[in-house]
Amino acid sequence: MADSGIAPGAAGAVRSARYRKWREWGIAYFFLFPTILGILLLQVVPVLRSAYFSFTDFNGVQPPEWIGLQNYADLGYNPLFWKVLRNTVYYTIGFVPLNIALALFLALLVNQALRGVTLFRALYFMPVVTSLVAISLVWAWLYQPQFGLINYFLSLANIRGPGWLSSTEWSMPALFIMGAWRQAGFNMVIFVAGLKGISQELYEAATVDGAGWFRRFIHITLPMLSPTMFFVVVVSVIGSFQVFEQTYVLTQGGPAYSTLTLSYWIYQNAFEWFNMGKASALAYSLFVVVMFVTLVQFAGQRRWVFYR
């Protein structure tokens, strides 16, 4: 009797615990629902739809027509696709190291306990939040081949500066130099946060051991900053593979395709020439490339990233 008296009670407790758990889940999902709906409608559905479009002949207006892998095959055989891919990689290779070096340099500068240093932090961050159109206008003056400031400085060193934006060799460097300058402030802020997290004891111990600033930088700052560095590198690489604005505003992909990047080409195909299917295939090619590069970076992080 005693057993049978306890058993229903225990079963009831289990049931009510399960009920409570479900209730909690229910409430949680109730509150999450708007977000989930938003993600589904605004991200998952478009992403899946564009995956479908990449297998179709679609102009954005009439119903898409299934053509299998034709879009991808066409891209593979199109020499321009490989040139655009090379351009994009070139931009990334030029942009990322330059941007990170500049950002780290600025971070080290503004990480000092000096009066008014926050003003400089704000100043260096300003290009990030300034309209690219305004920035491009100023840089177009700086790059002006005849009367621009950059070529003026070069002429002081007896170097005849190039037509930065109008030559096929220098247009891409012109874009990534401007891009690196513009984005430096953003990564600077992240580096500053990373620098703040490094324990002062390490520096003190090293100083006692007789290490100068350079050794402290190489043996303490860089290793301790490596998780931050890893994050910055990954995010910068992804961002630079998607570079669009610079080329859109300054060069429209010219001259002679020298600054045509994947994102801009996707835009042209989709919204200027209505080749939505081809544009979708291009977007997925970009996605695959970026994913591959990111995976390689994650695989390689064991060699140089130290988590404490």
Binding site: P145, Q146, G163, L165, S166, P255
Partner: peptide, 9 residues
């Protein structure tokens, strides 16, 4: 003037 000569001006 070659293309870009007056760029920015």
């Amino acid at each position: 003037p070659t293309p870009g000569f007056f760029e920015g001006l």
